[in-house]
Design a protein around this nucleic acid. Structure first.
Length: 716
RNA sequence: GGGCGUUUAGCUCAGCUGGUAGAGCGCUACCCUUACAAGGUAGAUGUCGGGGGUUCGAGCCCCUCAACGCCCACCA
């Protein structure tokens, strides 16, 4: 850290220096002014192009490119600045672009970043023409007191009167604005504190390159790198009230400068008792950059001990927005590595930024701000929270639409209703699951599904895919637990088999509790509320329960497979019923044909459920070798054909058309598979699993096509 | 000027190391079936921005064009 005269971004409104990163460049319509500078001892006039004629009072040279044949003979001569008639040297500098403007550049080291660099190369004096409030000072003669924008026009007019304004044409240029006040930035030279970040920035790049700190999503490391690979001295002093005052003290008497944590009692050199602290404060990002350290008491050993530095440093994850990767993440990385030779955290998760439903950034002036408190009032905190989580993956933006929140509000409502339904039965539930061999097929199915979900959710959250985690638990709750497991519990609870009832209540409760735990991070309120009513007296709040994980003991793949086939078939029957406009209440006779022995047994065992779920009477189960009934509506999956007997109630032609459409689709799929399998190149090049999988599909689709063909034949 | 990102069903978005497209909402039809109409059951919908290339095979890889968005940059 050092103090130096340097050109900095001066915010005239804040009356403070600001960092490069706090400057926003905006395109502004301005003019290119061509001004004539007299060459001393000659009639020749140099045509200088500038966007800021008012700064000519601060000119200390005129520069041309040494390769420029038009001007190179003038290098070494003097030019006379118009209006103030000061003499400045004509210099040659490679920076001057032959193509740009007139190829002739006025050099104002005090108020232009480039010119400052040129000035350093040529040892030019610096002339400051501005006051701290951005108005011109005494040097600007009659223009003093004017803001630069106003002075620009006046100077141009004056030059025009004197015949020294050769040209003025419209020009768009990028002008720096203060990100806080939107004021136009005035580059100015002043004494400021700087930090040399070169080595630190390099180290911070290495830490990410070598994986000591990882970005999620990974793409953001590019943004980080692009900042850190182009590091420049960082101006860390601010002339503001709020902030950490710079801990540097100057002796009032001898001018000795020393840096201390506390105000020193006297000067370490001359022992004078009055030491004055630097009035500037540190850039807020300098202080924030120390966050990982200062929150844990660093550098005071006692405070570090008290705050558990040893235990808590470094942390796992920093969660932040992409707009402060440079401001904050990079600074923490640099300072932490410098101070304690470590990274501040393992991961940085860059979350999305919430926008309105049209993707426009929310702002008060646009009036498109969605107030979380309003949303909570309308849809509830859980709905809002779940919506945000479900929208957060590796995306950059979240377009927050009320309809989306409403959808998840409905989901939470669904959960509540499910609980309401099973609530009366829960008293009968036991706290431990029944022994493995006592579990019914449906119990094993739901437990295995639960297990799958727990596994996927953990995996998703490990990599910050909250959207995937949410969609997993959403569809489990909705499609597995509510739609099937609860439905399949109804006849048990309506029955009289007490042991069965107890077991079902037990599993329902067990799964519910796990489900609540899985959901808890996303919908903490409703889950805690329900938990309160299902927990044992020994159990504490849900928020302190272990998060459910995959449990190998409760994995039942066979049951999952069977149940899924069963669901297929039920859906097929329902589909047929609706296809012929059967009323939901109407009962119907169904025959199923399958050669899958396991499923045959399964249908037998689940006859009662089949009947209830598909409103069927007389379920008949047969082999495919047996004759199909005539004039029935039918549907076929890859494993089971379904026939609905509807004697004379339906339009046969319509049914034939429907099946033909289905057959057309199945044939297309089948032919596609055959074509691919016939391709020798595919067989030779594709991995074995892919080929085998396709061969399996070939058999399935062949069976389906055959089934549908038989079905059509049976109509005639 | 440079860089990054986006472009997939009407809308908002998923799609892992290339194996032949998914969800939610919306829409259509039928249902007040005793947890839930903020619900149930079923259904329709895609030249995966355009063009070219690599590959047995491309939403995914390469080239190119276009539109939109963001960030960076001292070009007078």
């Amino acid at each position: 850290i050092y103090q130096s005269d340097y050109i900095i971004n001066w915010s005239p409104l804040l009356q403070s220096a600001i960092s490069d990163a706090e400057v926003e460049h905006k395109e502004v319509n301005g003019f290119f002014y061509h001004i004539l500078y007299q060459v001393k001892g000659s009639d020749q006039k140099l045509e200088v192009a500038t966007t800021r004629p008012e700064t000519l009072f601060g000119d200390t040279a005129v520069a041309v490119n040494p390769k420029d044949d038009r001007y190179k003979h003038l290098i070494g001569k003097m030019a006379i600045i118009p209006l103030c008639n000061r003499e400045v040297p004509i210099i040659g500098d490679e920076h001057v672009d032959l193509e740009m403007g007139t190829g002739c550049l006025k050099v104002t080291p005090g108020h232009d970043f480039n010119d400052f660099e040129i000035g350093k190369r040529h040892n030019l004096p610096i002339v400051n023409i501005l006051n701290k409030d951005g108005t011109l000072n005494d040097i600007a003669m009659e223009f003093k007191g004017l803001l630069s924008k106003k002075a620009r026009e006046k100077v141009a007019t004056k030059l025009e009167e004197l015949g020294l304004l050769k040209d003025k044409k419209p020009h768009k240029n990028q002008v720096g604005h203060c990100s806080r006040t939107d004021a136009v930035i005035e580059p100015m030279v002043s004494k400021q504190w700087f930090m040399n970040t070169e080595k630190m920035a390099q180290d911070s790049v290495t830490d990410v390159e070598t994986g000591k700190m990882t970005f999620f999503p990974k793409g953001w490391e590019n943004t980080y790198f692009s900042y850190q690979r182009n590091s420049r001295p960082w101006c860390i002093s601010r002339q503001l009230w709020w902030g950490h005052q710079i801990p540097v003290f100057t002796c009032e008497k001898c001018g000795h400068v020393q840096s201390e944590v506390e105000t020193p009692a006297n000067c370490s050199k001359c022992k004078h008792p009055v030491m004055k602290q630097d009035p500037d404060v540190l850039d807020t990002w300098f202080s924030s950059g120390l966050w990982a350290l200062s929150t844990l008491g660093w550098p005071d050993p006692k405070a570090m001990e008290d705050k558990g530095f040893k235990k808590f440093f470094h942390t796992n994850t920093l969660i932040t927005g992409h707009d402060i990767i440079f401001f904050w993440v990079a600074r923490m990385m640099m300072m932490t590595r410098y101070a304690v030779n470590d990274v501040p955290f393992d991961h940085t998760y860059i979350h999305a930024i919430v926008r309105d439903k049209n993707g426009v950034k929310m702002s008060k002036s646009l009036g498109n701000v969605i107030d979380p408190l309003d949303i909570i009032q309308q849809y509830g905190t859980d709905a809002m929270r779940f919506t945000l989580a479900a929208s957060s993956g590796y995306n950059r933006d979240i377009n927050l639409a009320p309809e989306k929140i409403e959808g998840y509000r409905n989901f939470i409502n669904k959960l509540w209703n499910a609980f309401r339904f099973i609530h009366p039965m829960l008293d009968k539930a036991q706290n431990e699951l029944p022994a493995k061999d006592k579990l019914t097929h449906h119990d094993r199915w739901i437990l295995s599904e639960l297990n799958t979900v727990a596994k996927k959710m953990n995996e998703s959250m490990d990599i910050y895919r909250f959207d995937d985690a949410c969609s997993e638990i959403y569809s489990f709750t909705y499609d597995k637990y509510c739609s099937w497991y609860i439905e399949l519990s109804k006849n048990i609870f309506q029955g009289t088999n007490e042991a069965e009832i107890v077991q079902r209540a037990t599993v329902l409760k067990y799964v519910l509790k796990k489900m609540l735990a899985l959901l808890h991070p996303f919908t903490p309120f409703i889950t805690e509320e329900i938990w309160e009513q299902v927990k044992t007296s020994q159990e504490d709040l849900l928020i302190v329960q272990e998060y459910p994980e995959f449990d190998a003991k409760l994995e039942f793949n066979d049951d999952q497979l069977k149940m899924n086939k069963f669901i297929d078939t039920i859906v097929n029957v329902r589909n047929l019923r609706q296809g012929v406009n059967l009323k939901p209440k109407d009962e119907v006779t169904v025959q199923v044909f399958t050669d899958d022995k396991v499923m045959q047994t399964y249908y037998h065992e689940n006859k009662e459920n089949f009947d209830r779920l598909a409103k069927v009477t007389n379920l008949i189960i047969k082999n495919k070798s047996e004759d199909r009934p005539k004039k029935c509506v039918t549907n076929a999956s890859s494993h089971t054909e379904v026939y609905l007997q509807l004697e004379g109630l339906i339009d046969l032609n319509e049914q034939i058309k429907r099946i033909e459409k289905e057959l057309g689709k199945a044939k297309l799929d089948y032919e596609n598979i055959l074509k691919r399998l016939a391709n020798q190149n595919f067989i030779n090049n594709a991995p074995k699993e892919v080929v085998d999988e396709l061969k399996g599909k070939e058999v399935e689709f062949k069976e389906k096509v055959t089934s549908l063909e038989i079905a059509i034949k049976n109509f005639h």
